[in-house]
Simulated assay, not measured.
Amino acid sequence: MAEARKIFSSGKGSFLLTLPKNWVAENGLKSGDVVLLDIGRDKITIYPERGEREKKVARIDYEGSTLDSLIRRIISYYLAGYDSMNVKIYNDEQRNAISIASEILIGFEIMEDLGEEIRIEVFLDLNRLKPEDILEKTSRICQSMFSDFCRAFTEFDKYICSTIIARENETDKLHFLILRLLKLASDYPDVKKSLRLEGKTMEFQTVVRALERVADHAAKIAESLLMLQKPVPELCELVDFSGDMLKTAVISFFKADAELAEEVLQSCDDFFKNEEDFYGYILSKELKEALLLKTIIDSLFRILGYSSDIAEAAINLGVKEQ
């Protein structure tokens, strides 16, 4: 909630502003302590100078949890920025949930297993982790999926389809990691500054979610192709176009190039006008094949939609950086 405070002159061109007493007490500050100022164009953010961020510890006691529900609960604590979790274990299913979580969350380590309780620590060096680098790595994985799709569509290569599905798991790991970093950046201005996220948090969140969905649909396409058990070269045009739009949208985001992003949006809009032509192709197919082909086409057009989301984020970022 915004709070109005008066500015006082202290002479010789300096000005004074008092700090709220409750805020000072809640942050453990006293007279003589140092605070840091993050000075922006039209605002100043004040935050305490801390040598280390306070460790966040959670205790998870969820007796009725299933494997999936406990995994979701652990992921939620990870994304919320918790550094340590003590998880009460009631059965083998819950124990397996922790093992699975350790495989999909970067920096997540089981440090102590006491039988009825497992202690987990998250080890991440914020000085070495930069969301922009992680986002770029995620985008390269997604683009590599598309570079392999054309061969899979023309030759029906089972191995390529399997690797595409495996790469989707890697994007999930990076997706969770970036979301954790974005949450920490929103809670701690000093973390936001060290991660170089000032004024970019919302756009980064949009893009990382879009890329995660792109990878999900790419895996769905690969799974459908495996079930078809044959090539579908007729869809290579749609695959190539979707891959090109994704690549261009990502470039426009990293360059904050609004004009290039507009080209992506216009190209996608124009291409969507031909959507019925691709669906018309499946009408003469048998039911099972038609359903699998529809899944593939649906996913490719969804990917075009996510490329448009990335392009819109690029425009927003370009406006902010003017």
Rank of each mutant, 00 (worst) to 15 (best):
A4N: 12
R5W: 10
I7G: 03
K12A: 13
S14Q: 15
S14F: 13
S14I: 13
F15P: 00
L17T: 12
P20W: 08
K21W: 09
D33K: 11
V35H: 14
K43P: 00
I44H: 10
T45C: 12
I46P: 08
P48A: 11
G51D: 07
R53C: 03
K56H: 12
A58P: 13
R73S: 08
I75R: 02
S76E: 11
D83C: 03
S84W: 04
N86E: 06
V87Y: 01
K88A: 14
K88I: 13
Y90L: 14
R95M: 06
A101Y: 04
S102W: 02
L105V: 06
I110P: 04
E112I: 04
G115Y: 03
G115I: 10
R119Q: 08
R119I: 10
I120V: 11
E121A: 11
D125W: 02
N127I: 05
L129V: 07
S139C: 04
S139N: 03
I141F: 02
C142G: 00
C142L: 06
C142N: 02
M145G: 05
R151A: 14
F156C: 09
Y159N: 15
S162Q: 12
I165A: 08
R167W: 06
D172T: 00
R180W: 03
K183R: 12
Y188P: 01
Y188I: 03
D190G: 02
V191M: 08
K193W: 04
E198H: 00
F204H: 01
F204K: 02
Q205T: 10
T206Q: 10
V207F: 06
V207Q: 09
V207M: 06
A210Q: 08
A215I: 04
A219N: 10
L226R: 07
V232W: 00
L235Q: 03
L235E: 06
V239I: 15
D240H: 08
F241G: 01
T248S: 07
V250F: 00
S252R: 00
F253T: 14
D257N: 14
E263S: 13
F271Q: 12
N274Y: 10
E276Y: 03
G280R: 08
I282L: 10
L283Q: 09
L292A: 15
K294L: 05
S299E: 01
R302T: 13
D309R: 04
A313D: 04
A313Q: 05
I315S: 07
V319H: 12
E321A: 10
